[in-house]
Amino acid sequence: MKTVERYKKGVSFHLVTALKYLALTLAGFSCILPFVWVALSSVKPDKEIYSNSFGLPKIWVWSNYKDAWKGAQVAASFLNSIFYSFTSVALLILVAAMASYILARVWTGKILYNFFALGIMIPIHAVIIPMLMILRRLGLVNTRLGIILAYTVAELSFSIFILVAFMKTIPKEIEEAAQIDGSSRLRTFFQIILPISKPGLATIGTFAFINSWNDLLLALVITSGPKLSTLNLACFNLRGLYVQHYGLITAGLMIMMIPVIVIYIFFQEQLVKGITAGAVKS
């Protein structure tokens, strides 16, 4: 009887495991399918995109990338997106790290922390009009500084939420030893806390870069000139009024996706460490 029960438990365990892997496989396939379609469509003529959507192209049209790069000032917009994303990430890391350190070590009450965390539940669409009014009064509409500040503010709440949980896992004995050696709080923060917090900083930096790079709404509202447009906005402008050239549009999308994929590949280990920090108490 015990052998039969063990056999049944083993069969049920393997069945559940197989179903889990099947669900994960289907989920992964559903995620990668749009990317495959975009990649294949970027090297096809427009007629073949409709007639042979998921098949290999009969004619490889690499000129779509060349035309997309030249059209709608994609090259200049690419450099703008690089500048906006990296500058806003650097500013965000500095501000969020300083605020998180104070919330994790100095003002450890829940009121101020909940105030910042509350921003996660408020969508950017709900504050876009007040943000635009503030930027207009400060004279920052249609400026590079305005779009950088908007990207920084949009990611601040989530970044503080992640970093506070990470910094609470740092042993206080490290700071106490630094204070005994005569280190000030500012020096302790920059020379000890920041280097230790690299996984958390990589996490918020990666998320902020991806969201800033993929943004269309803020760039569409704050900027109005082609000299300040982002890559996402330039790809949006590749569409025609009456005819959609999907070959050009998908080529522009591939150009836009490559930097995000590269950033994620390089920082995926730190990303996982930063997200799971504070999840398990020792």
Results as ranks from 00 to 15, higher is better:
residue 198 K to L: 14
residue 250 T to L: 03
residue 43 V to N: 01
residue 124 I to P: 00
residue 15 L to F: 13
residue 68 A to I: 07
residue 153 V to D: 01
residue 103 L to C: 03
residue 23 A to D: 02
residue 213 W to A: 10
residue 3 T to C: 01
residue 70 K to Y: 14
residue 231 L to A: 02
residue 63 S to Q: 15
residue 239 R to K: 07
residue 61 V to I: 12
residue 36 V to P: 01
residue 261 I to Q: 03
residue 182 G to W: 11
residue 21 Y to R: 10
residue 60 W to V: 15
residue 144 R to A: 13
residue 275 I to H: 04
residue 91 L to R: 04
residue 18 A to K: 10
residue 33 L to D: 00
residue 108 T to C: 09
residue 273 K to P: 03
residue 54 F to P: 00
residue 181 D to A: 12
residue 95 V to W: 05
residue 7 Y to Q: 11
residue 77 S to Y: 08
residue 34 P to N: 04
residue 61 V to Q: 12
residue 232 N to D: 01
residue 97 A to T: 08
residue 264 Y to A: 14
residue 174 I to G: 08
residue 135 L to R: 03
residue 22 L to I: 14
residue 137 R to F: 06
residue 251 A to C: 00
residue 164 V to F: 05
residue 55 G to H: 07
residue 212 S to F: 04
residue 171 P to L: 05
residue 203 T to A: 11
residue 214 N to W: 05
residue 134 I to R: 09
residue 96 A to F: 03
residue 162 I to H: 04
residue 214 N to E: 13
residue 10 G to Q: 05
residue 59 I to E: 14
residue 37 W to R: 05
residue 27 A to K: 00
residue 242 Y to M: 09
residue 204 I to R: 10
residue 45 P to A: 06
residue 134 I to P: 00
residue 100 S to A: 11
residue 26 L to I: 14
residue 106 V to Q: 05
residue 199 P to M: 13
residue 209 F to N: 07
residue 277 A to M: 10
residue 143 T to E: 04
residue 28 G to L: 03
residue 255 I to Q: 01
residue 92 L to C: 11
residue 195 P to A: 09
residue 195 P to G: 13
residue 161 F to K: 01
residue 181 D to I: 08
residue 9 K to H: 11
residue 2 K to G: 15
residue 153 V to T: 12
residue 174 I to M: 11
residue 206 T to Q: 08
residue 182 G to M: 09
residue 171 P to K: 04
residue 219 A to Y: 04
residue 234 A to R: 02
residue 82 I to G: 07
residue 46 D to S: 12
residue 17 T to F: 10
residue 266 F to H: 06
residue 148 I to H: 08
residue 93 I to E: 14
